[in-house]
């Protein structure tokens, strides 16, 4: 299947000489939720801004639904809704007016029923006649989302959508995102919160210092790079790890009451069976046993460290 967005060899150098994106190659599939994950200053906003037409591309080319973003900008931009990172709103406008304005800019005929639906989904309906300046930060964020959805886009960019947002909005927003995805909309969200990508995305791309370090199915990413910890709560205190267990690279913790075994889920063999056998031979008894998976955060920190 043809990707809905295709970025090839994109390099962007700002006027000051700073290269914010280095030879980016990235395909976004139709209908997926793609999480672009990276620390502040990695180049996430720059990449989105170029695709949307706000920043001039440097070298390279980008197509959206097969159309070149420069040559066929009308076709590509019609498909895209953008929720920017900054809370940029027209303070003096009413919610209804500003959302309708966005629809008009995209050349779509008026459709009050659609605007009403969007405002209701975002719990903005009772605020529709209020001026934006009277709204809280979270409400303004909702207005920006409503503006982006006003023209029924096929692709939605959410640039750090939950930065400084309350729990309730976060829930509402994920609900809206899930419904959009169900209706076939492709969603690209950037974040530097791992949980967000972990919770929402189908695929994750990690960007750091202007380079895409890795793109992977989320589950695959977890499987490939995730390590797991097996923790054993011991029956009695152990002063040091017996030499017979050296090979397992165990860690002794909690003043000798806990043993931790770290294993790589990538391997076909985890080594757990041998470990348990060896423990029993060494006559080490345990009360409890549990495993925990390393979070995406650990993976991410490792990756970014490795790329530096």
């Amino acid at each position: 299947m043809r990707p809905i967005i295709s970025v090839s060899n994109l390099t962007k150098t700002y006027k000051g000489g700073f290269t914010a994106l280095k030879n980016i190659n990235l395909d976004i599939q139709d209908g997926e939720i793609f999480g672009l994950l990276g620390p502040n200053g990695a180049g996430k906003t720059t990449l989105i801004s170029i695709i949307c037409g706000i920043v001039n591309p440097g070298e390279g080319s980008i197509t959206v639904d097969g159309h070149d973003i420069i040559r066929d900008y009308r076709a590509t931009r019609s498909l895209i809704g953008l929720v920017p990172q900054e809370l940029t709103t027209d303070a003096f406008e009413t919610v209804w007016h500003t959302v309708s304005f966005s629809r008009g800019l995209y050349g779509k005929p008026k459709n009050p029923a659609h605007i009403e639906k969007v405002l209701k989904e975002l719990s903005l309906w009772d605020k529709k006649d209020e001026k934006i300046m009277s709204l809280s930060g979270g409400m303004k964020r909702r207005v920006l989302i409503a503006k982006a959805l006003s023209h029924e886009p096929q692709i939605l960019f959410l640039d750090e959508p939950t930065a400084g947002v309350d729990v309730e909005l976060r829930k509402d927003m994920w609900q809206v995102v899930r419904e959009l995805r169900a209706s076939g909309v492709t969603i690209i969200l950037t974040t530097h919160y791992i949980e967000e990508a972990e919770e929402m995305a189908d695929r994750i791309g990690v960007i750091s210092n202007g380079e895409i370090i890795l793109v992977e199915e989320k589950a695959e990413l977890m499987r490939k790079l995730g390590t797991k910890q097996l923790t054993l709560e011991l029956h009695s205190k152990l002063r040091k790890i017996p030499t017979s267990l050296k090979a397992h690279k165990l860690e002794l913790m909690e003043e000798g009451m806990q043993l931790t075994y770290t294993y790589d889920t990538r391997g076909t063999r985890t080594g757990i069976t041998t470990l348990l056998n060896d423990l029993s031979k060494a006559k080490i008894k345990f009360r409890d046993i549990n495993t925990s998976q390393s979070s995406l955060e650990d993976i991410f920190v490792n990756l970014v460290k490795r790329s530096k």
């Binding site: 037409g53 931009r77 800019l105 995209y106």
Partner: peptide, 10 residues
């Protein structure tokens, strides 16, 4: 900053 909308519209 609302100019973003003019620049990204078709």
């Amino acid at each position: 900053g609302t100019i973003y909308e003019l620049l990204s519209a078709p």
